[in-house]
């Protein structure tokens, strides 16, 4: 299994570690040629404004858009979720693929960053939220809520896409890795549009 990780800037090496520890092969995406024969895609945390700027030179987002729309498993965390949202408050839309509205830096500055309890499917654990966005609206009923911090929505799924606002890649706990392994493998059965 080959999993592409957008590697312009941010926590792409942490995701790479997660992929290695489930026995798959990480591919660091820096240009179009890297998006070849991939089974799944990860859009990591970092600064969404920096990633957008870098893409204006490297031009891979339109190819990633086709990949995501082909139905292959796609995971985003934090800034990656901003890239995928159909509506962005405090920023621009980038590769709009998931029917949510997100608000950038919604908790405030770094001093408001925190470790918080998250129910992710049927598991409870503590994850980092770092200058995180909030999912402030769900735009269609195609979106399923899969993770909550207290009453806040912090993770959603729509078809082949899972978008999170926290950082499971900084934990790499057993539950997450097991989920990731299944999520990527399920992609083998996904119909190509």
């Amino acid at each position: 299994m080959k999993v592409g990780i957008l590697s312009f800037q941010g926590s792409f090496l942490d995701h790479s570690k997660s992929i290695l520890s489930i026995g798959a092969t990480p591919v660091l995406i820096k240009n179009e040629a890297d998006i070849y024969d991939l089974d799944a895609l990860i859009l990591p945390g970092g600064e969404s404004t920096a990633m957008k700027k870098i893409d204006s030179y490297l031009k891979v987002f339109s190819v990633l858009d086709d990949f995501i729309k082909s139905g292959k498993p796609t995971l985003s965390t934090c800034a990656g979720t901003i890239l995928l949202a159909k509506e962005v408050i405090g920023g621009d839309t980038t590769i709009p693929n998931i029917d949510i509205q997100v608000t950038r830096n919604a908790y405030g500055r770094q001093t408001e960053s925190f470790e918080g309890s998250v129910s992710f499917y049927d598991n409870n654990d503590i994850y980092c939220f770092i200058r995180a966005p909030k999912i402030t609206n769900i735009l269609t009923d195609k979106v399923e809520v899969i993770a909550k911090h207290n009453e806040e929505i912090v993770g959603v799924k729509q078809d082949n896409i899972v978008a999170l606002t926290f950082h499971p890649e900084l934990n790499n706990d057993k539950y997450y890795l097991n989920w990731l392994d299944n999520f990527i493998k399920e992609g083998e059965n996904v119909r190509t549009l």
Binding site: Q9, S113, F114, E115, C128, I130, L170
Partner: peptide
């Protein structure tokens, strides 16, 4: 919810990587 833990502080630095 706990703010300003070592993990959260080091975490922001992780997000700046490659930048």
């Amino acid at each position: 919810k706990i703010e300003s833990t070592n993990k959260v502080k080091r975490g922001l630095a992780e997000m700046l990587k490659g930048g």
